[in-house]
Structure formats: structure tokens, C-alpha cells
């Protein structure tokens, strides 16, 4: 009953000259092949099924699968390579410079982290899954991850935010940045105003009014 996997079925049926012996030969082959077919279907009864009961059991995805972009914000150095390389412009990134004494940790490339990532939004509804941003990321903070599913009821729920900050903290950092910018602007304005006064006494004037002003006022 065992037969090779592939075969020429026409060749299986012997051709005979006598019509009567052809008749019986065909009949015999009919019976044998029916039994053979029944054996094939029967042999599949106890076999393991290949069906996966999807929501209950899941097939693990390949590590290369481009499923969902995830940014590990602690490793993100605010280089904006991802934003620059993205062909559909799905990144909205805002950073606030850390204060000079502030320690934000070391990035995977060995350099100290200098920026607070206040906003790192990815609009997955627009993503074309080209993967250029992941390749561009120097610190490997932006990666593909493989959640089995990410169904949402609202398109806005696909705007993922990876900053990992509360709104208050964000506001605080942004306010601080704003204040610093204002101070800088004020300093620049002062500097712009100063030169007319400064030239006669360069050392004392600049020391008190402009250059020490931004640095000592900030330390945390």
C-alpha cells in the first residue's frame, strides 16, 4: 500500500489488449486505490493538527518582524536621525537640554545623555514599515518589537508616546527651558546693548553682567 509521494497515475493503469481483462484490471485498480486513499485519510486522523487556536495560542514572531516601533527613551540621545530619515514624517520629537550638573545617565555609545526627551511621538497609522529609522538609530534605542496584536478603536490611539513622562513633568521641563531661553535672550539683548558701554572696561563689566549670569543662576 505504500507508494512514492509523486507518481504518474496514468502509468499506474496497465493497458491490456483484451477488453475483458482491461475491465477487471481497471476494477482491481479502482478497489486498491480506493483503499489506498482511505488509508491516507485515516492516517491523518491521529496526526497533530496544524491549526493554531489564535487568541488562545500564538505563534512567536520572527525577531526580524517589523511589527511595532518602540523607543527606549533612556537610551535615546536626541540625535533626530530617525526623524530626518523618515520618508513619511511620523516622528514628533521635543527635547530639553539638561542642566550642566544634571546626570541623565550614559548612552549605549558611551557618551553622557544630555537631553530630556519631553516628547517622542510616533504616528504608527502613517508608518510604512520601511525600517530606515531603526537602522539610523545610533544608540539602538529605537527598535522593532513584536506585540502579537495592537488593535485600537480610535486612530489617535496609534499615536504612540514614548517619553514616559507625566504631563506635569513635561510642563515643568518645558517651563524651565522657556525660562532659560528668556534668560538667554535677555543676556543676548544685554550683550547687544553692552558693547557700547563695555570697550573701555572689558574685564570688570563682562564679568559681572553677562558671562557669569547664565551659568550660576541655573545650577540645580
Amino acid at each position: 500500500m505504500s507508494v512514492p509521494a509523486t507518481r504518474d497515475t496514468a502509468a499506474l493503469i496497465p493497458r491490456r489488449r483484451n477488453p475483458l481483462s482491461q475491465y477487471f484490471s481497471d476494477l482491481w485498480i479502482g478497489i486498491v486505490t480506493i483503499l489506498e486513499g482511505m488509508w491516507v485519510t485515516f492516517s491523518h486522523l491521529p496526526k497533530r493538527t496544524i491549526t493554531v487556536q489564535y487568541p488562545k495560542e500564538k505563534v512567536p514572531m520572527y525577531p526580524q518582524t517589523r511589527a511595532m516601533l518602540v523607543n527606549h527613551v533612556d537610551d535615546c540621545g536626541y540625535c533626530l536621525s530617525c526623524k530626518r530619515v523618515c520618508p513619511v514624517n511620523i516622528f514628533t520629537i521635543t527635547g530639553v537640554r539638561a542642566d550642566p550638573g544634571e546626570d541623565l545617565g550614559i548612552l549605549p555609545d558611551g557618551k553622557p545623555k544630555k537631553m530630556h526627551i519631553v516628547d517622542f511621538k510616533i504616528d504608527m497609522s502613517k508608518c510604512v514599515y520601511c525600517g530606515l529609522c531603526v537602522e539610523a538609530c545610533d544608540t539602538r534605542s529605537l527598535r522593532w518589537e513584536q506585540p502579537q496584536e495592537k488593535p485600537v478603536y480610535n486612530r489617535r490611539d496609534l499615536h504612540l508616546d514614548f517619553s514616559g513622562m507625566t504631563a506635569e513633568r513635561k510642563q515643568e521641563l518645558l517651563d524651565r527651558d522657556e525660562a532659560r531661553k528668556k534668560a538667554k535672550a535677555a543676556e543676548a539683548a544685554a550683550k547687544a546693548a553692552a558693547p557700547k558701554v563695555a570697550p573701555p572696561k572689558p574685564t570688570s563689566e563682562s564679568g559681572t553682567a553677562s558671562s557669569p549670569a547664565p551659568t550660576p543662576s541655573d545650577p540645580s
Binding site: 485519510t41 485515516f42 491523518h44 486522523l45 496526526k47 497533530r48 493538527t49 496544524i50 491549526t51 487556536q53
Partner: peptide, 9 residues
């Protein structure tokens, strides 16, 4: 029967 003969459930 049909399902298991076709390796389904």
C-alpha cells in the same frame, strides 16, 4: 472527522 482528516480542528 473531516477536519482531523485534513489536519484541522
Amino acid at each position: 472527522v473531516s477536519a482531523h482528516m485534513q489536519d484541522r480542528l
